[in-house]
């Protein structure tokens, strides 16, 4: 048998209409999600096995799901309380840190004065000072917001300060030969240059703000709402389904925040090497 019978001739090959390759988004490709899906399935099986043997340690996943579905308003209300505390806290902490980073990058004396205090604040366990904050700010939302602000302050301060100082020397040289003012350099170079660092800080502090809010709800006495309070009260009454349902809500909030920051990065950092296709 001749080989030509089996292999298509070049002419036949050319006669075929060009095949249009539809590009599948990377996140839809099994290579992306299959390993995680398999791992999650294995963990779920292991969870169920433990839950059946030890119902006082772990509730069954179905039970957690049912709790979530049956009382959505309970979780939504408490999630909103926690989220609101987290957002106000991050606005104060990250916003304050951003303004201070601007001052520190422009005025060396401010940097030298504030950095040691910021470092001490960072290494001090915020949970330990929460009771003192309750005494200072009273019951209610204020101490929780302050705890959240303190937790989110330092990462933003360090990242933004680094970003504002990370402008390439030749770019600054060009601006200096144009006799640009400090404000022009700040607005046209330093702030855009610091954007990758600022968004990297947000990636850390937005989920951290939820941690801060929950921790504050645990520690601050007199909390009337929030997922942290719900977890604490449910654990005390052995309602593990509520505990894990609240934890699932917190995880969903964290993931949503990360997704938002990622979308923001894609939108604002299209020019940055972190967003470039490495195959280019």
């Amino acid at each position: 048998m001749s080989t030509t019978e089996h292999s298509p001739s070049p002419a036949a090959h050319d006669a075929r209409p060009p095949r249009r390759r539809t590009r599948v988004p990377a996140w839809l490709h099994p290579r992306t999600w299959a390993p995680t899906a398999v791992l999650v399935a294995l963990l779920a099986v292991a969870w169920q096995a433990v839950a059946r043997e030890h119902p006082y340690i772990l509730p069954e996943l179905g039970e957690v799901g049912r709790t979530l579905v049956e009382e959505p308003s309970l979780f939504l209300e408490n999630a909103w309380t926690t989220l609101f505390t987290a957002l106000i806290g991050v606005l104060m902490g990250a916003g304050g840190a951003f303004v201070l980073a601007l001052l520190m990058s422009e005025l060396d004396v401010v940097r030298r004065a504030l950095m040691p205090i910021a470092v001490v604040l960072n290494v001090t366990p915020v949970v330990a000072i929460t009771p003192a904050l309750v005494v200072a700010f009273g019951f209610g939302m204020a101490p929780k917001v302050v705890v959240t602000a303190l937790i989110t302050f330092f990462p933003v301060l360090i990242n933004v300060t680094t970003g504002l100082r990370s402008v390439p020397g030749p770019v600054l040289d060009v601006f200096r030969t144009l006799h640009a003012s400090r404000l022009e350099v700040l607005l046209r170079v330093r702030l855009p240059s610091s954007l990758p660092y600022t968004l990297a800080a947000l990636r850390v502090v937005l989920p951290l703000s939820i941690v801060g809010a929950v921790v504050a709800e645990f520690v601050a006495a007199g909390s009337a709402g929030g997922l942290g309070t719900m977890i604490r009260n449910s654990a005390a009454t052995a309602r593990l389904d509520l505990v894990y349902a609240a934890i699932a809500c917190l995880a969903a909030m964290g993931v949503t925040m990360l997704a938002l920051v990622t979308a923001l990065e894609r939108r604002l950092l299209f020019w940055h090497e972190s967003q470039q296709d490495p195959a280019r």
Binding site: P170, D173, T177, L178
Partner: peptide
């Protein structure tokens, strides 16, 4: 420089990437 009469081309292009 104050009169913006100096142009500089550094070794790297030093463009604003954004």
């Amino acid at each position: 420089c104050r009169a913006k009469a100096v142009g500089l081309v550094p070794q790297t292009p030093a463009l604003l990437p954004w």
